[in-house]
Design a protein around this nucleic acid. Structure first.
Lengths: 91, 91
DNA sequence: AGTGTTTACGGCGACCGTAAATATG
DNA sequence: CATATTTACGGTCGCCGTAAACACT
């Protein structure tokens, strides 16, 4: 019953898309590259879509990946807003 | 490193807010009421905010809960859209 | 060969269900 | 007393890190 588009996965995906490297994305996320690789693979497998093209050391979004990136950025921004909104209510 | 606003929690929260009963919300979510109670309590504890007022069998949103509901609905709708968008790309 | 990614494997934590305790009407 | 929620407890599954295998330049 795991939601495919989990916030953690979306963050890993968006970070990798922005940075273009598993190693550096993992560093920014305070994870290992193994964990990032797992998360992306799980996303791709469960969606049935390839999100990145691996050409050697280059990592670039596929068209499907570009679709998801737009969605992911919107969702992550909403979550950020929500957290800020609620944090302001705690006194 | 667990994101507070997890999609699962948000779904449980929004469902409970709409239905107003742990038991019935759990049924709709295909979970036990215990699981829903846990999820809501975790949300409330981690946010440091009470989201529902329990008056006997009545479960109603607090002001903070109403804030979160608006946010949660938006986020969940975005996720729904994203899934639909990506599903359309799978042939 | 060296850097980067994937895969295998083990451990730890989160989440859920069962069931007991508690509350409410 | 019956129904609903909370809490305690145990098991299972998922996620992460270590480390080995693999790929590319």
């Amino acid at each position: 019953m795991t939601p495919i588009l989990d916030s953690r996965r979306l963050l890993a995906f968006a970070t990798l898309a922005r940075i273009g490297s598993f190693t550096l994305a993992a560093k920014e996320l305070h994870l290992t590259q193994s964990a990032v690789s797992h998360a992306i693979k799980a996303l791709e497998d469960e969606l049935g879509l390839r999100l990145f093209e691996r050409r050697g050391r280059r990592v670039a979004l596929t068209p499907a990946g570009e679709h998801l990136l737009i969605r992911a950025q919107r969702i992550l921004a909403e979550m950020q807003d929500a957290r800020a909104d609620l944090a302001a209510l705690v006194q």
